[in-house]
Structure formats: structure tokens, C-alpha cells
Design a protein around this nucleic acid. Structure first.
Lengths: 253, 253
DNA sequence: GAGTGGTCTAGACCACCTT
DNA sequence: AGGTGGTCTAGACCACTCA
């Protein structure tokens, strides 16, 4: 029953020289976020609430929200509402630290959840990477990872059973590389990382509680041992607003 | 005058179990692109043409196009039309090669254009980076870079005049690092790179012939010399579908 | 000047989350 | 059960590109 949101005060100045009105609304909300009036995790008023008073169509309001989503300032939980994004964590591919480590280092709370684990025949694309014949059995692990209880990525890890036969009998909610090292004597000596913007497919989006098609970042990591064998092949689908990449290089004298 | 596009044959199967129709159209177009029926650079039929026959509203068609844009499969030229995206180039921050070099190595045609060069007072955020007082004069260079004639990024480079006094009198359409090395004896020994998804602001979007708010990737590079001084501060705004990042690391024995 | 995408309105119904 | 976002229709006018 209270004046719940100052967001609605965005009545555009009539004589303004500005552009489209959805950008004016975007600016309004962005300003509130930047000034800290809307803290991370806060839920925005509903789309229909933002309409009240203004003669604005709902579609126009949604345009402003999509814009902010693309910028990483807000995100949505499917059919629940729009929320202010927490700050992104920084990922440094040059360090060998795993998710649990570097998230914790940044003062955040990481957690991992195994969604599925099975030994399944290799699809041909993956078989090529492991240099086995298509259809050969490979361990496949699907996990979901959270930061401060917000799901930020799902990943599919593929491991060759030749290197770690009964891998799936372990608890996989911690560091996988750790298990490979400790229990199977595997040593990773080379790491390849590829990154590209993408849109989340329905399957991934569902697991993240997002809408299919929301922007994401695909990070593919391939680890090799000293003999050049692929140890671990990891496809990570990130919410695009949750990650930032940082690389620092010096010339070796 | 011909049957110009098979894209319109996407009449959804009536009894289908599938989801929203904009995703069906998305799949249709994506399929055509993947199969090579729509080559990179090809222009899609206009939105209103895609409507004809189907009883679909224009808004629904646009939703499919936005989705494909977010995935990086297509892009738009403002008020001109939708086009199939060319393949992305791969950027490896660990190599010290510049844009002109690595684009050429990948069989593509790079070009650079200087939009503006001036010596202007430092905004406080930038002054901090260079460790000068706010308002101190710094060289600022705005450039636009293309791959195969398509504008893919605009960048703003900031250089301390103390290191390169008459830098702006040079032609800046080539490698800037080259000029700094050759003419001013500056040696870069450290490079820091930061990356994050973003949305293109109006100013940037205009320079790229894109619509404000289209998804982008911000790459910030900071170069230092052996004494730890900032040599070059470079903010690159990329079309998100034009770049892919690749890092390869081995343990040093 | 014809055609394009960009913006906006004013409805509607649905699946799903929340309480 | 009520409210939320998700999808969709059917218009309209505008600014701009392109030939």
C-alpha cells in the first residue's frame, strides 16, 4: 500500500531532445542501480506496475528491461520477475585455480551440485577431441554452480574412463581436477581455454532458471597431461553478467 | 522477381509439440545458415516479406531475429536490413601480435581508420590509471577497425605525452605499438587484458553502423613498460559476433 | 520516393511461480 | 487464486537508407 517504487517517476520531459522513451526508462533504472538505490538481488517492480500512471505500453517497458539485461545490469527469473545483477566474478585463465577457489578468494560463496553423471557413448565431435572412436564410452558429468546461491553456470565435463575408471563413484561436488590428481595420479600440464558469447539454449536456461535465449558466455576448457592426452573436456555455460575475464602477462626475460 | 527465399516455407507443423513459434522460425533460419544456404554477408528478406503468407505478426518475426542476433548468427545494419554474420576471428591475448597481424594470419582483410586524434585533459578515471593529476593532457586516439570491410570494433587509445610527445603527427592507421617502439624507444614488457560482455552505447553503435544496445564485448588492454609506467590504455568495443578468445597454457618445467 | 527497420500502442491469452 | 512474465496479434507513424 505504499509508494513502492521511485522508478515510476520517470515521466519523460515533454520538450526533451532525447531519443526513444525506452532508453529514457533504461537510464532511469540504470541510474537507480548505479547510485545504489537498487541493491544487487533486489527485485524490480512488475512490468505492469511500471506502466501505471505513464501511458506507456508494456512492450515499451520490456524493451528497456531487455536493454538492461543485455548490459548485464539486471537479469530475470523465469516468470518470477526482474532482479538487479550481483557483481561479476573475475576469471583468470592463466591461474590454475578452480571455481571454488577463485570465487571464495573474491569474498563470495561458491557451491556445486551434480545434476547427472553417466558413462555414455561419445558423440563424434567429442570423440575426435579424445581421439577415440565415435560411440566409445566416456564419463559425462553435468554440474550446476552457484555464487551466493544464484545459479551462474552449468557445465558438462567429459573424462576418458581409461584415465579414471571408477570416477563416477566419487562425490563430484568439489574440485574434479583434485580427484583426478589424488586418486588417479593424473597431472595436467596444459590447459586450453576458448571463450565466446552465445545465447543459452532451452536446456541450459532451464537449469539456470533463466529464459531460453538469454545472453551467455561459453567457456570451453581442455586439459592435457604430459603425454598430450586429453584429461578433461569442460563446456561451461555462464550467465553473461556473472563473469569477467582477466589476463596479465609479462615478457619472460 | 523470383521466388526469392525459402525462408518463408516455415509454416509450423500444426500438431507439433514444440514451443513458441518465434523459436521455430529461428530454427528455420539457423538451419539455412548452418547448411550454407545463406552465406555470410547475405541479406535476409525483409521483415515484412517474411510475414507474407504466414499469419505471423511482425513483432514475432523480430523476436526470432533478435534471438539469432544474440547468438551471433546474424547482425543488422541500422535501417538497412539483417545480414548473416561472417565467422569470428580468434584473439589470443597471450600472443603479442596486433590486430593487423592476427586478422591477416586468419586469412581475413584488416583495415584501420582514425576517427579522431587530440590531446585532451584526462578524465579522473583515466588519470588514475596513468598516475597523473585529473585534467593533465593525454593523447586520445579514436579508431575504427574493419575485417573484410565490415566494421567490427571501435577503440579509444590513451597515451601519455611524456612518453611520446608528438605522437599525433604520425599516421595512426597501422600498429600503434610499432610507432611507440620505433620512434620513441618505448618497450612494452607487461600487458593486462580485461574482457566483459556489454551493450553498445549509441556513440559506439553509430560508428559501427549498428543499433544502440546491440550486444558487444569490451576488451580493455593496458600496456606497461619495464619501469611499470602505463604506455598505452586501449578500450576496444567489439561486435560480439566478431571475436573469439583463445588461451593456451603449459606448465613451465 | 519506395522500402526498411525502429518505435509505440492496446489489446489478448497462456504457462508458470508464488502464496 | 492471483499475479508474473512469455507469447502473440494488428495495427500505426517515424527516421532513415538506398536506388
Amino acid at each position: 500500500m505504499r509508494a513502492k517504487n521511485d522508478l515510476l517517476q520517470w515521466t519523460r520531459s515533454p520538450g526533451a531532445v532525447e531519443g526513444p522513451q525506452y532508453l529514457a526508462l533504461r537510464d532511469q533504472i540504470a541510474l537507480n542501480i548505479d547510485m545504489g538505490k537498487l541493491a544487487p538481488g533486489t527485485r524490480l517492480p512488475s512490468e505492469r506496475q511500471m506502466q501505471t500512471g505513464t501511458g506507456t505500453a508494456r512492450g515499451t517497458i520490456r524493451e528497456a528491461l531487455f536493454q538492461l539485461e543485455a548490459e548485464g545490469l539486471i537479469y530475470r527469473r523465469d516468470r518470477s520477475g526482474w532482479y538487479v545483477s550481483p557483481p561479476a566474478v573475475t576469471y583468470d585463465p592463466m591461474r590454475w585455480a578452480g571455481f571454488m577457489t577463485y570465487v571464495r578468494e573474491q569474498g563470495r560463496m561458491p557451491s556445486t551440485e551434480t545434476l547427472k553423471k553417466e558413462t555414455a557413448p561419445a558423440p563424434s565431435a567429442v570423440a575426435d577431441i579424445f581421439r577415440v572412436s565415435p560411440g566409445a564410452p566416456l564419463h559425462v558429468i553435468d554440474r550446476r554452480r552457484r555464487i551466493d546461491d544464484r545459479a551462474v553456470l552449468v557445465e558438462r565435463i567429459t573424462v576418458d574412463p581409461a584415465l579414471a575408471p571408477d570416477l563416477l563413484s566419487h562425490s563430484l561436488d568439489g574440485s574434479l581436477t583434485n580427484i583426478l590428481t589424488t586418486h588417479y595420479g593424473v597431472t595436467v600440464t596444459r590447459n586450453r581455454v576458448d571463450m565466446r558469447p552465445c545465447a543459452l539454449t532451452k536446456e541450459v536456461a532451464d537449469a539456470l532458471g533463466a529464459k531460453s535465449g538469454t545472453p551467455g558466455l561459453l567457456v570451453v576448457r581442455t586439459s592435457f597431461d604430459s603425454q598430450g592426452r586429453v584429461v578433461e573436456y569442460d563446456q561451461e555455460y555462464w550467465r553473461h553478467d556473472a563473469i569477467r575475464v582477466h589476463v596479465d602477462l609479462s615478457v619472460r626475460p
